[in-house]
Design a protein around this nucleic acid. Structure first.
Length: 486
RNA sequence: GCCGCAUUCGUCUAGUGGACCAGGACGCCGCCCUCUCAAGGCGGAGACCAGGGGUUCGAAUCCCCUAUGCGGCACCA
């Protein structure tokens, strides 16, 4: 196979959501699967000035970087086929549009927005599909000259054949066919001199020698325009694959309506890139019935185009959470601590590196998302926690028994102010429980609530070690006081 | 409305004419482990393969029709 070159071509209209990024991921995987010669290219389709967002480009770059979807060519890194922002390639499109007009494959249209609007309203009223009526397609030379003399604004439209059908082989769906009469005389070049998607994508994919076009299957209805353009220019059509969309829980195409859908939001919500990468790859693609967990390297190695699903896939948050938890558990403790750092900073908890490093093993198998560590560890920071004293009294115990448990626990801990030998302390605490005739669960519950203020907490011994001897003893004493009144 | 794409457990999916009274994963339920919660182990429920016609000795797998869902119908991508 000659060199594979796949492009991801978003427009800078906001933070890319996971559906778009999944398209980027598949392109990346396919390019990298073919080895070092496979290139992943980033091209920015900024041809609509109206919809542009100021930091749109940055958001795209950041999203791709988060997932490690490194591009070989793009607006920031350059490449042999630049520029990679369509707004910087305007003369190219204009020249190609001129060529089409010269060949008779496109024509100037002088219709005003008002006329088009009225035309569509009429078509709609008659229950007809809204399509450009071709008014300017058969303008005489004189009429054109008149419009030009008057300085009327003009666009360039594609002259779509009235009959026949257009077929595109698609490596996901098989042959796709649409009758030409269903295809609009699409605008190729807008009156502001910018191209529309249709012209730009074909010109750029060809000029940039894109080997495989991969895009969402919401593009299927407009492929005839692209095929027609390739033919008009006399260019080979690269293999196309229309990826099924990613759906929200309501089965509708994923969008902002579905809540946090941008990759950056997932990052901020505490999802690992490893997990997102794995999860997104499995949405609409699978290897077989055995493998679920894939690293980036695995995926690059086994990714195959013919395994891409035909039907849209629903984004399953629960499964993502499971995967994220799995990858969190795989992290070395140092690494987990490092990844946790920004979340504690954001929560404004003064957790130094050593504390986080010691905390990591405790929270590790209890996290689905990194953000959750903050709530699990918050008892370590700030003032002694407030709680309902009733919580100190475990199931089947009374206040006196809980008090006895705390007294025994304090007596044990007092012997180990350095909290050095955890196992030994724990053994002694168990012995104390036995001695009091309490179940471990009952005994430790009292201690747990006293120390953490919660009935559900991180492992007790580790929590005590992190809290420190002083604070622990103070909280136990306080708990005993609370119990005294009962 | 017109055109197109799709249709296997709740979800992601395996399955390309016989090995499928349909396999795995997430989720769910139960048990074990256990200082709580998790994690882990074990087990369970859960899909008559959208429906109906064909083709075939034989169909989840091939063909047709219907239904449903989704997508597109801009000087937006």
């Amino acid at each position: 196979m000659s060199n594979v070159r796949v492009r991801f071509a978003p427009s800078p209209t906001g933070a890319p959501h996971v559906g778009n990024i999944r398209t980027a991921l598949f392109g990346y995987l396919w390019a990298k699967h073919t080895g070092p010669s496979g290139k992943f290219i980033l091209r920015i389709e900024d041809t609509d000035q109206a919809r542009e967002v100021e930091n749109g480009l940055e958001l795209i770059l950041e999203s791709l970087r988060f997932l490690g979807l490194t591009w070989d060519e793009g607006p920031d890194v350059g490449g042999a086929y630049g520029p990679y922002e369509q707004s910087k390639r305007l003369p190219l499109y204009q020249a190609h549009a001129a060529q089409l007009i010269a060949q008779g494959d496109a024509y100037h249209c002088y219709c005003t927005a008002e006329r088009l609007e009225q035309m569509r309203a009429e078509q709609k009223a008659q229950g007809k599909p809204s399509r450009y009526d071709g008014a300017c397609r058969q303008l005489s030379a004189d009429e054109r000259a008149a419009h030009e003399r008057a300085g009327d604004a003009r666009v360039v439209r594609l002259a779509v054949p009235r009959d026949g059908v257009t077929t595109l082989p698609d490596f996901i769906h098989g042959d796709l066919t649409i009758a030409n009469k269903e295809v609009d005389d699409q605008v190729l070049l807008k009156s502001d001199g910018f191209p529309t998607y249709h012209l730009a994508v074909v010109v750029d994919d060809h000029l940039m020698q894109i080997s495989h076009v991969m895009r969402g299957d919401d593009w299927i209805p407009s492929f005839p325009k692209h095929v027609l353009l390739y033919r008009a220019f006399g260019w080979d059509i690269p293999p196309h694959g229309h990826l099924p969309n990613v759906l929200g829980p309501d089965k509708k195409k994923l969008s902002k309506r579905h809540g946090a859908t941008s990759v950056l939001q997932f990052r901020d919500d505490g999802y690992l890139p490893e997990a997102m990468f794995n999860f997104l790859a499995r949405l609409g693609w699978s290897l077989d019935d055995k493998n679920e967990l894939f690293t980036r390297e695995d995926l690059i190695q086994v990714f195959a185009l013919d395994k891409i699903e035909h039907a849209p896939a629903t984004f399953d948050h629960a499964k993502l959470d499971w995967l994220n938890g799995y990858y969190i558990r795989q992290l070395p403790a140092d690494e987990l601590a490092a990844r946790l750092t920004p979340f504690f900073e954001r929560a404004q908890l003064r957790a130094d590196a050593a504390t986080l490093r010691a905390l990591a093993p405790l929270v590790q198998e209890r996290l689905k998302k990194l953000t959750e560590a903050v709530a699990q560890a918050d008892f370590l920071f700030g003032a002694d926690p407030e709680y309902d004293p009733q919580l100190l009294i475990g199931k089947g115990l009374d206040a006196a028994a809980a008090l006895a448990a705390l007294r025994a626990a304090a007596a044990t801990l007092e012997k180990y102010p350095a909290l050095a030998d955890e196992e030994k302390i724990e053994a002694e605490l168990r012995a104390a429980a036995l001695n009091l005739g309490q179940k471990n669960a009952q005994f430790f519950n009292a201690l747990r609530v006293a120390v953490t203020g919660k009935t559900v907490s991180l492992p007790l011994m580790g929590s005590i070690r992190l809290l420190g001897y002083e604070k622990t003893m103070r909280r136990i004493a306080r708990a005993m006081l609370l119990l005294d009144g009962k």
